[in-house]
Amino acid sequence: RLHIEVEGTELMKKLVEEAKRRNLNVRAKVENGKWIIEID
């Protein structure tokens, strides 16, 4: 499991799109103003 903290929506969208393209499980949520992304 990969755990990433990202500031900025554009970067988050790119990460999520790339993960979906590779058929990975992606969860994204906002915590303290940062995107928290978990990829399995």
Score class of each variant (00 low, 15 high):
6 V>M: 06
21 R>S: 07
33 G>K: 03
18 E>Y: 14
35 W>E: 00
16 V>L: 11
40 D>E: 13
27 R>H: 08
25 N>R: 14
29 K>M: 09
27 R>V: 10
25 N>H: 13
26 V>F: 08
10 E>I: 08
4 I>P: 04
22 R>Q: 08
2 L>N: 05
19 A>S: 03
11 L>I: 11
11 L>T: 09
8 G>W: 13
29 K>Y: 15
23 N>K: 12
16 V>K: 04
36 I>P: 00
19 A>D: 00
30 V>M: 15
1 R>Q: 10
21 R>E: 03
9 T>L: 14
13 K>M: 14
12 M>V: 07
1 R>S: 12
17 E>N: 10
40 D>L: 14
35 W>Y: 05
38 E>Y: 12
35 W>D: 00
13 K>T: 09
30 V>L: 15
29 K>D: 04
32 N>K: 05
19 A>H: 02
5 E>W: 13
15 L>G: 01
13 K>F: 12
12 M>S: 03
15 L>Q: 01
20 K>W: 09
24 L>V: 03
36 I>M: 04
40 D>T: 13
29 K>V: 11
8 G>D: 15
3 H>M: 13
12 M>I: 07
5 E>Q: 09
10 E>N: 08
17 E>W: 12
7 E>N: 11
34 K>S: 05
37 I>W: 02
38 E>H: 09
4 I>K: 03
17 E>V: 06
13 K>D: 04
36 I>L: 05
7 E>D: 11
1 R>M: 13
20 K>H: 08
35 W>G: 00
13 K>L: 14
5 E>H: 09
1 R>V: 14
12 M>E: 01
18 E>K: 07
8 G>T: 15
3 H>N: 11
18 E>N: 07
36 I>G: 01
19 A>Y: 14
38 E>G: 01
16 V>T: 03
6 V>W: 07
13 K>I: 13
24 L>I: 03
17 E>R: 13
20 K>N: 06
40 D>I: 14
9 T>S: 10
14 K>G: 04
22 R>I: 05
14 K>S: 08
11 L>K: 08
31 E>G: 03
40 D>K: 06
40 D>G: 11
32 N>A: 05
26 V>L: 06
38 E>R: 05
24 L>R: 02
11 L>W: 12
8 G>V: 10
35 W>I: 06
13 K>P: 01
34 K>T: 06
21 R>A: 09
1 R>F: 14
5 E>L: 11
30 V>P: 07
11 L>R: 09
25 N>Y: 10
2 L>W: 15
36 I>F: 05
22 R>A: 07
18 E>F: 14
12 M>R: 02
22 R>L: 13
31 E>C: 15
25 N>V: 13
8 G>L: 14
38 E>W: 13
12 M>Q: 02
9 T>P: 09
5 E>G: 05
2 L>Q: 07
1 R>Y: 14
20 K>A: 07
39 I>R: 01
31 E>N: 06
28 A>K: 03
35 W>V: 04
15 L>P: 00
14 K>L: 13
3 H>A: 09
32 N>E: 05
36 I>S: 02
38 E>P: 00
12 M>C: 15
16 V>F: 08
1 R>I: 14
14 K>F: 12
30 V>E: 14
20 K>Q: 08
11 L>H: 10
2 L>D: 06
37 I>D: 00
31 E>M: 12
22 R>Y: 09
18 E>H: 10
31 E>R: 11
4 I>D: 04
11 L>M: 13
17 E>K: 11
38 E>I: 14
24 L>M: 07
36 I>K: 02
31 E>S: 09
3 H>I: 15
31 E>K: 10
27 R>P: 00
19 A>V: 05
12 M>Y: 08
23 N>T: 03
17 E>D: 11
37 I>S: 00
30 V>C: 15
34 K>G: 03
7 E>Q: 11
13 K>G: 04
24 L>W: 07
37 I>H: 00
1 R>E: 07
23 N>S: 09
16 V>N: 02
7 E>L: 14
36 I>A: 02
28 A>H: 04
5 E>F: 11
8 G>I: 12
38 E>Q: 09
29 K>F: 15
20 K>R: 14
4 I>H: 04
21 R>G: 04
4 I>V: 07
3 H>D: 06
11 L>S: 06
15 L>M: 09
1 R>T: 13
26 V>E: 00
33 G>D: 05
26 V>R: 02
32 N>H: 06
24 L>T: 00
22 R>F: 07
2 L>Y: 12
6 V>I: 09
23 N>R: 13
10 E>D: 11
9 T>W: 15
5 E>D: 07
39 I>K: 00
37 I>T: 01
26 V>T: 01
36 I>R: 03
9 T>F: 15
9 T>E: 14
15 L>N: 00
13 K>V: 09
36 I>V: 10
3 H>L: 14
30 V>T: 09
9 T>G: 08
11 L>N: 10
30 V>N: 14
31 E>F: 10
21 R>P: 00
4 I>Q: 04
18 E>L: 15
19 A>W: 11
12 M>H: 01
29 K>Q: 06
39 I>L: 06
26 V>G: 01
34 K>D: 03
23 N>E: 04
17 E>P: 01
1 R>H: 13
40 D>P: 03
14 K>E: 07
6 V>S: 03
16 V>W: 08
21 R>N: 04
18 E>M: 14
38 E>M: 10
19 A>C: 14
23 N>L: 09
18 E>A: 13
38 E>D: 10
16 V>H: 03
